[in-house]
């Protein structure tokens, strides 16, 4: 039995301990908040084969986890810092190697990596090639690769080669072959992009995916409208407009279309080139 004095000491110690605990818990929480997985991302800098060896029979589950980790970070963000791009790319590559048939990874790779442009396009194609090899019943990885060659690398010949091969897969949309043939010609790229996305829209299952594709089609239609206006402007004045608003001021366009892919609704414009 504790006497009154001992009880008081115990009570005091308990109060002090609770105060210390509460202080440290708050401090830890603040530090952890800074490490919010939706704000920063990291990837283990090891070859995917090492993960394959270490994960054993749980490799497929690890692939799910890695792609989920990348998805949590990417969320609905518009821009990604270069350091994080590297981590996301590594996560995609690792997930694709661990399970080269998982379509969720394939879809995310295509939806994210090539749009960063530059070196990331080839990295995305390398990863997507894994899916094309292993998902031999599915035309979509081949379609994605063809699109990347055409749209980002402007390599129409490679795009048409991949699309022609993909068109031979049973149940592949017949339009793939037509697109492949069209790409071997020069020009009309924006139009062909819209045709690509319309093919995707026909086969997309989920409503969220359809909404995203529709958004991009709308953006591309805006690009097409602006490109036609720029061509007319160039023909009339001998040089491209200084800004997209010049197209409206000169009476060529009634208004500048709204870009649904950016928060400010504006299209990117630089010396006659339009982007979204």
């Amino acid at each position: 039995m504790l006497n009154t004095k001992d009880s008081k000491i115990c009570l005091c110690l308990l109060v002090v301990a609770i105060a210390i605990y509460a202080g440290s818990a708050l401090s830890v929480q603040r530090s952890r908040d800074r490490l919010d997985p939706t704000q920063v991302i990291s990837a283990l800098q090891v070859r995917p084969q090492v993960l394959e060896i270490l994960s054993g029979e749980f490799r497929s589950l690890l692939a799910d986890y890695l792609v989920l980790k990348a998805s949590v970070y990417l969320g609905g963000r518009y821009s990604t810092p270069d350091t994080c791009k590297k981590a996301v790319s590594i996560l995609f590559r690792q997930s694709a190697t661990l399970d080269p048939r998982f379509f969720q990874t394939c879809y995310l790779v295509q939806g994210i990596e090539p749009w960063w442009k530059g070196i990331w396009v080839k990295k995305a194609i390398t990863t997507l090639e894994l899916f094309r090899k292993h998902r031999d019943w599915d035309w979509q990885p081949g379609f994605f690769i063809g699109f990347d060659y055409f749209y980002f690398l402007k390599d129409n010949l490679s795009a048409s080669r991949v699309l022609m091969q993909t068109a031979e897969i049973p149940n592949a949309p017949p339009l793939l072959g037509l697109l492949g043939a069209r790409l071997s010609q020069q020009g009309g790229q924006t139009k062909a992009s819209i045709a690509f996305l319309e093919t995707m829209l026909d086969t997309a299952g989920k409503e969220s995916a359809k909404t995203e594709i529709k958004r991009r089609i709308e953006a591309l239609k805006g690009v097409l409208k602006l490109e036609r206006g720029i061509t007319m402007y160039r023909a009339r004045f001998g040089h491209p407009p200084d800004s997209l608003e010049c197209l409206v001021e000169s009476g060529i366009l009634k208004d500048v279309p709204v870009n649904p892919c950016r928060r400010d609704g504006r299209y990117l414009y630089n010396r006659g080139k339009v982007g979204f």
């Binding site: 029979e57 749980f58 497929s60 589950l61 799910d64 989920l68 998805s71 399970d99 048939r101 998982f102 379509f103 969720q104 879809y107 989920k206 969220s208 995916a209």
Partner: peptide, 20 residues
């Protein structure tokens, strides 16, 4: 529910991991 594509595959992964 966190996945939108090949969900059956994710279920199989988790189910068999639990079995293992």
């Amino acid at each position: 529910n966190l996945f939108s594509l090949d969900v059956g595959k994710v279920m199989i992964d988790i189910g068999f991991a639990a079995l293992s």
